[in-house]
């Protein structure tokens, strides 16, 4: 007989660990973003399980019948909030990834970082040892100081 609580909690901690591993070990930006989503899912599940009790009923009164033992409504409301926050951030992250892919033609973390450092250095007028040229795209970005 398997303990339900053990299974549920293992699921939550498992998701958290898989998410962290995905963020730390993969080098593709979209995979890293999915790692963040998994980590968030694990944290949400853990929050939902915080005051979980076996066999508790949903905290809703249907036709005037009050269940004997109702589940804690607070974590459910919190997780609803956390999920919506996660969706908003995920959408923004994917928009950014789209623009990065369009600008650099790659989503490899190390390559993106190298190109970004080049851009920053080129804009600052510093020669990085690894690159001799500053990309022309940087020049167009400097519209702000014109006024």
């Amino acid at each position: 007989m398997l303990d339900t609580g053990l299974v549920l909690y293992s699921g939550a901690f498992g998701l958290i660990l898989i998410g962290i591993a995905g963020i730390v070990l993969s080098s593709h930006l979209v995979r890293i973003i999915f790692g963040v989503a998994l980590l968030e899912a694990g944290a949400n599940l853990l929050l939902l399980l915080a005051t979980w009790h076996e066999g508790a009923a949903a905290p809703i009164i249907v036709a005037g019948r009050v269940p004997d033992r109702m589940a804690d409504p607070v974590p459910q409301a919190l997780v609803l909030t956390a999920i919506v926050i996660g969706v908003g951030i995920l959408a923004l992250a994917l928009s950014l990834a789209l623009r990065v892919q369009r600008a650099y033609g790659t989503l490899d973390m190390h390559e993106v970082r190298r190109r970004m450092e080049q851009d920053i250095a080129g804009e600052a007028g510093i020669d990085l040892p690894s690159s001799s040229h500053a990309p022309a795209a940087v020049q167009t970005a400097r519209q702000e100081g014109g006024a």
Binding site: L6, Y9, W52, H53, D72, P73
Partner: peptide, 25 residues
């Protein structure tokens, strides 16, 4: 696992019908 005391949750479950009046707590 599954032994934590939801003190705020229980308080809300017993007060929500009167304080807020929503059947879905």
């Amino acid at each position: 696992f599954g032994t934590a005391a939801p003190i705020v949750g229980q308080a809300i479950n017993s007060a929500a019908a009167e304080q807020v009046g929503a059947a879905n707590f």
